[in-house]
């Protein structure tokens, strides 16, 4: 459920070279074509989709480097189902 929403956000904002549905949860999103600036848009769209706000300490490249990492980060925040 969470991962599906993350993939949807990635398809809309990640500027990936391939559909996010074809990526493993631990595939490197930056290697798949996501730029730093695209990751910013992904971050903002994730906040909207999950109604969460990433705290400053999570605003790093590592937080958004894989679907699994994003999922884990969102899991630590307010558990609002998308």
């Amino acid at each position: 459920m969470t991962d599906d929403t993350i993939r949807r956000v990635l398809d809309a904002h990640g500027k990936l070279r391939v559909p996010a549905s074809g990526l493993d949860a631990d595939a490197d999103l930056y290697a798949a074509g996501m730029s730093s600036h695209a990751s910013v848009n992904v971050m903002l769209a994730l906040e909207d989709a999950f109604e969460v706000e990433f705290p400053d300490e999570l605003l790093t490249k590592q937080t958004f480097c894989t679907i699994a990492a994003i999922s884990a980060a969102i899991g630590t925040l307010a558990a609002v189902p998308a």
Binding site: S36, D56, F64
Partner: peptide, 13 residues
Amino acid sequence: GRAGRMLVSEQLR
């Protein structure tokens, strides 16, 4: 802004 924090962290790291 907040979006900028991500870019800063990468630049410094």
